[in-house]
Design a protein around this nucleic acid. Structure first.
Length: 497
RNA sequence: GGGUCGUUAACUCAGCUGGUAGAGUAUCUGCCUUUUAAGCAGAGAGUCGCGCGUUCGAAUCGCGCACGACCCA
């Protein structure tokens, strides 16, 4: 931008300079009390073409110019505010020669204020006939082309502000995102859950298996980690006597980026004392189907061309059942640890030396079953081996009282009856640390304070995590997580464009 | 990390087997008081992502790098 401006940018700056020299304020801040465009539109419903509103009411609107059709002594343009869009008609004989000369320097992209009367044009479009015009903010850069708009995904993500200006469906997606989060709060609050905030910076990053971001606190002289999950803190609150808690906040994972992964993402976690994972399946089914009805107006939604029916009840399979019924495995084989391990290797799954049949089974599930779970499906009875924080099943201690929820082949939720036996918990932590392999960045430290908290006694409870971004993707039919995060992470631009 | 594809004017895109860059929108000038992808006439605008190589000559071919998309791990 420094050396050679493109002529189009130069033209804008020259024009702005000319206006400023003529005494026009390019950045005024005294256009008071504009009316939302959406509130004006119904006022003109009864107007016939080529007629003005009878009582001649005056309207004040402000917004960005999105299109412009100029004639010699008149012009039409559209302005857009947050609520909508309306056409403005400007006539030289109504605003005066001087004002009209200034108006001729207005461009698409400028933010302006208009005062005038409501009327309907010959072609039937409700419009405001301008009596007074005011520049509020002069735009120095052109908006993308009016017909194709902005489609380059890289620019859309890097310059989200432009994306939001020109792509109304993008604004809708983010409004829906806000609405979904608001409804979740309402849903949980109505059921007695308390919304809490727990540390984003943790001395021990726990509650999940992932590589954390590391930082350093100068005054304390200690390493801190951005949290990979709030789980262990929320469960400390159960120890403390809060019986239903939830948190909606950011988690950070120092791993790859993809259409389903952003280094920071929003997670809902909630914990309920004296509940089991069965109770949470019921709650989840109720919550997500209700969200769909509220946000999409139906429980039968479309995601990227696939029909998805979110109406309860949802299918529930144990992992073994799913491997047999959907994965096509022989039921007898699942009872044979050696055969499971062999099959996993045969399918090209790499298993660490210390990995057991539970790990192999889980990997086989991901490979053979996961992507085929389009309609919502709860998978239960996860192997204890892959569930370090979940309560063991009382009849079969090799599995846990846990479920994951899959919709459109993707994991949406993960929940379990909580492990609250401090001795069992300590042993599992130690085993996990021993097995962490060569990656010292994952779970570097044993969370002894968490074990201490459990020693005081945590009530029987169940807890769940729901990835908000993925849920929003589902309910807004968005193909990439970057479509539901306002400012997704990208590599730095090579150069300023 | 691997593979495939992409990167050309502010935006959306053409540009064949190498011959030195085009369209539409946008911009600028003129005409135009009911248009809505307004219209008509004219004009200007690009280190063709970056670098190296092959060649008399590279947007085009080769190699490397950057950024992005999709798929795989």
């Amino acid at each position: 931008m420094d050396k050679q401006q493109s002529n189009i940018l130069k033209a804008r700056r020259d024009k702005a300079k000319t206006l400023a020299e003529a005494g026009v304020k390019l950045f005024s801040n005294d256009f008071k009390a504009p009316q939302p465009i959406r509130e004006i539109l119904p006022r003109g419903e009864a107007l016939a073409p080529e007629s003005h509103e009878k009582d001649g009411g005056s309207y004040r609107v402000a917004g960005r110019i999105m299109s412009m059709r100029k004639f010699g002594k008149a012009a039409f343009f559209h302005i857009q505010d947050e609520s909508g869009r309306i056409q403005i008609y400007v006539r030289r004989d109504l605003v005066g020669d001087e004002e009209y000369a200034v108006f001729k320097k207005w461009d698409v992209g400028d933010i302006v204020g208009v005062e005038g009367k409501l009327f309907r044009t010959r072609t039937g479009e409700l419009s405001i006939e301008a009596l007074r015009l005011q520049m509020i903010t002069k735009s120095l850069r052109p908006l993308p082309e009016k017909f194709h708009g902005l489609t380059d995904v890289e620019t859309r993500y890097r310059q989200r502000y432009v994306d939001l200006i020109v792509n109304p469906e993008v604004r809708d997606t983010f409004r829906k995102r806000v609405e979904i989060i608001r409804l979740i709060r309402e849903f949980l609050t109505n059921r007695g859950f308390l919304e809490v905030e727990t540390p984003m910076m943790q001395p021990v990053p726990g509650g999940a298996t992932a590589r954390p971001f590391k930082t350093y606190h100068n005054a304390l002289g200690m390493d801190l980690y951005l949290r990979i999950a709030p789980e262990l803190y929320l469960k400390r609150l159960l120890v403390g006597g809060f019986e239903r808690v939830f948190e909606i906040n950011r988690n950070f994972r120092n791993e790859g980026l993809s259409t389903r992964h952003n280094p920071e993402f929003t997670m809902l976690e909630f914990y309920q004392a004296y509940a089991t994972y069965h109770d949470l399946m019921d709650l989840t089914e109720e919550m997500i189907s209700w969200l769909a009805a509220e946000v999409c107006g139906t429980m039968e939604i479309t995601y990227q061309g696939a029909q998805v029916n979110l109406a309860p009840p949802w299918r529930r399979f144990t992992m073994d059942e799913a491997l047999v019924e959907i994965g096509g495995l022989d039921a007898a084989l699942l009872q044979d640890d050696a055969a499971i391990m062999a099959l996993a290797r045969e399918k090209g799954i790499e298993l660490q030396p210390e990995a057991g049949p539970g790990k192999a089974k889980t990997e086989l599930f991901e490979l053979l079953v996961e992507e085929r779970l389009i309609d919502p499906t709860f998978i239960t009875s996860y192997p204890t081996e892959v569930s370090p924080l979940a309560r063991r099943n009382e009849e079969d201690p090799s599995v846990t009282d846990r479920f994951e929820l899959f919709i459109t082949g993707r994991e949406i939720a993960n929940a379990f009856s909580e492990l609250n036996d401090p001795i069992d918990q300590l042993q599992r932590f130690e085993k996990q640390i021993a097995e962490r392999g060569d990656d010292v960045e994952i779970h570097p430290i044993l969370d002894q304070d968490y074990v201490r908290a459990l020693e005081y006694g945590m009530p029987a409870a169940a807890g769940e995590g729901i990835g908000i971004d993925r849920l929003v993707m589902l309910l807004t039919d968005s193909p990439s997580i970057r479509d539901v995060i306002l400012f997704p992470h990208l590599k730095p631009e090579a150069r300023e464009k």
